[in-house]
Design a protein around this nucleic acid. Structure first.
Lengths: 245, 245
DNA sequence: ACCTGAACACCGTTCAAGT
DNA sequence: ACCTGAACACCGTTCAAGT
């Protein structure tokens, strides 16, 4: 039953034996990301990737140590699009741009969003350019010492937290029945026990975490994100000034 | 070769045939969480869970529709510990408590932290108590309309973003070689190209995202978290006041 | 150096069958 | 109602072998 998984036959039938695979890391990463973009993370496997590449599954192991490392490489690839522009402007504007760039980069590959939250955290491949850029912004905000560290962690947490959740795939996004049930539960809320929720139901429905049935691809949270950035900037400004931690 | 996976024999040999499994949702969730706490998410499977329960893997399906739903139930179980206290105090203090409670709840099961980021987002099982509680805090902060929605999203993003990352497991936490390599890379940083990073290396090493080699279990980010909460509170106060969105 | 090919030890999930 | 038991269609990863 291994006949179906013989990629060589496919490749030869298409291009003839002269068409060497010419595999390499970039091709693997690009193909993997295409698969994830098209079909999502759940269906992604090294075997479907190999099939797309016209290669045996084990061939990938020549360029990538294992599946997890491949996923980390994909995250690096996605976040490489987060430009670090060195124009000297107000730190608020620089931070605003960073937030927008980050959201754009992740939003370009929403199906890969769940990877950001876990893989960025300790990405050795991640260039220090990002780190230095963020630190310089916060320094310009008047932060130093422990407050600088805390603000750095805060911004990273904020970036990842919002965007990863915004584009996180809903459990059964395709199921109309599930979407209906979420909406039904919201409509049946008791205004006595949940007055504020009931009073703002129209504003919150499908526009707030936990209370939505579509993710950022179909129902973007751009407005909330801008205010989110305002909150972070305002908060940093509030703790700034005295730089003694 | 299915002899090894016959749990009935084990059960009988221990307790005799009278010892019925008495399976139910709570037992399954508790056992699953124990396995995750002990061995991590990577090794967790419905088959190891069934083995622990002394039951065939398929028996679990009587109580849980599938693996993903089980993981969602586990998240709900963990976050149920986030107490909603209805004492009327300054909104700042209520928000501070919420952040601390959330971090404690997730920190009690760090290996399950990656689940929080993706599963909370659309958890239908999640009680509306949490939502109403957060909305009431933000109302007391003077927010209404679109700003209320945005602040709600911001707090959820902040809660999940920081804590999920703080407790996210490092790629090869057990590997001393990997830890050394991270530290080496940091020590070899060029102070010319990365002046701020180099100048704050001692403060940042193992205490900042991307620049650490241990997660929150071994190297908690409690100090950063407190300042993070200050930033969020300060930012909400800054956008508050005028409640017209 | 780079890829094939077979094999190992797993998975989640289904379905029919038992009790 | 609740669980067994077998089976299906997958996985990631290893290792030896080819070229």
């Amino acid at each position: 039953v291994t006949q179906e998984t013989q990629p060589q036959a496919k490749r030869k039938s298409r291009r003839g034996p002269a068409a060497a695979p010419n595999l390499n890391r970039d091709v693997i990463i690009a193909s993997a990301l295409e698969l994830i973009d098209e079909a999502g993370l759940e269906t992604f496997s090294l075997r479907t990737l190999a099939q797309k590449l016209g290669v045996y599954p084990t061939a990938v192991y020549w360029y990538v140590p294992n599946r997890n490392e491949l996923l980390a490489l994909i995250v690096t690839h996605i976040l490489a699009k987060v430009q670090v522009d060195r124009r000297r402007r107000a730190w608020q504007q620089s931070l605003r741009d960073l937030f927008q760039n980050f959201r754009s980069a992740v939003g370009a590959h929403p199906n890969a969003a769940p990877l950001i939250g876990t893989a960025l955290v300790s990405n050795t491949e991640m260039s220090f350019d990002f780190v230095e850029h963020l630190l310089s912004i916060l320094s310009r905000a008047g932060l130093a010492g422990p407050k600088l560290v805390a603000a750095y962690n805060s911004v990273v947490a904020a970036l990842v937290g919002f965007v990863a959740q915004e584009f996180a795939s809903m459990p059964k996004e395709d199921s109309a029945a599930w979407q209906m049930s979420v909406q039904q539960r919201l409509l049946n809320i008791d205004p006595e026990t949940y007055p504020i929720l009931a009073g703002n139901l129209r504003l919150l429905s499908n526009k707030a975490f936990i209370l939505r049935w579509q993710n950022g691809t179909e129902a973007p949270l751009a407005d909330s994100y801008e205010i989110f950035v305002d909150i972070i900037i305002g908060g940093i400004a509030a703790i700034g000034g005295t730089a003694d931690g």
